[in-house]
Amino acid sequence: MTKVEMTVNGKAVAADAEGRTLLSHFLREELKLTGTHVGCDTSQCGACVVHVNGEAVKSCTMFAQEAAGADVRTIEGMAESDGSLSVIQQAFQDHHGLQCGFCTPGMVMSTAALLSENAKPTETEVREYLEGNICRCTGYHNIVKAIMAASGQDVSDIAAE
């Protein structure tokens, strides 16, 4: 066991971790931040995506000890300081970009990473960026729409509303 310290959602935290303790496990079980989900064990579904030092990573494929000293942001740190939904979160609600909600934290974190790299992504860019985030409920229609809306683009002429 090693004491691992890091900053999570702006707060300094410290907890014990074994070498094999994954960052996802550390967040969920030690810090009780259960918004980060684990949906697979081959690093593909993306439900566990968090930001480490500003970059999106799969927290199920990174050891907690590797994140020692890092600035980590999870879904619990995405809302506005007054608790209201952020622009991305609000767009997901407005455009019904989630159903069961299980993949949603990863989708929101990936969206935030995308929009920080590419402020106005095209539909194709959005779809390609989501290669590592699997959703089983929505058929992706409203997720893609929500992300484009979150980037300030007019989505009113997208089919089916």
Binding site: L33, G35, A79, Q93
Partner: peptide, 9 residues
């Protein structure tokens, strides 16, 4: 959606 989007489901 509010709880799902905030990680509080």
């Amino acid at each position: 959606d509010v709880r799902f989007l905030k990680g509080t489901g």
